[in-house]
Amino acid sequence: MIMMEEKVVKVHLKVNGKEYELEVPPNERLLDTLRYRLGLTSVKEGCGRGECGTCIVLVNGMPRHSCLTLTATLDGSEVTTLEGLAPEGKIHAIQLAFLETKGVQCGFCTPGFILMAKALLDKNPDPNMEEVKEWLSSTLCRCGSYHYYFAAVKLAAKYIKEGKIYFDEEEVRKKYYMKVVGR
């Protein structure tokens, strides 16, 4: 039971592999804890109502709208944001696939898409296109990059199947930063 009149609630969280003992107001949203307390600003707020999907994070491996989740309810949970998808200095195969398929436009929705892809591939390493579309349609994209993002998940699945999970970020930057990748 959470006493809404209490000033703070103690919560033990593991975020991106790091342990935190937090004291948060009972009505604090996970979104605010992550963005403003922990500085994890890949978590975006697009609507605050679970409609746009830009705030999606993984809680114990499952997708969760951090705007609909009270931090106080997560004692003992493990949270992953885009910052923690790969170890420090690494880039996850899904991120690389999103880069290579060239779908990123404004990038505001991208974290939500990538984390949803992660949740999907964890459950089903070889999803068909219909499943990819169903899962990835949890986030809205106004720039219209959906086709590219769907293709990215298929590519990521291929990398993961080949055992290529993490890539060195510096090498990726060297290889891809403003590099010609096609006609």
Partner: peptide, 25 residues
């Protein structure tokens, strides 16, 4: 006319890009 990885794409897929509200931190 070539397909070139955009200047800001890597920052965006890593979640490192700073949008205005992110600077609040």
């Amino acid at each position: 006319g070539k397909s070139i990885i955009k200047w800001d794409a890597i920052d965006k897929i890593t979640g490192k890009a700073w949008f205005t509200a992110d600077l609040k931190k």
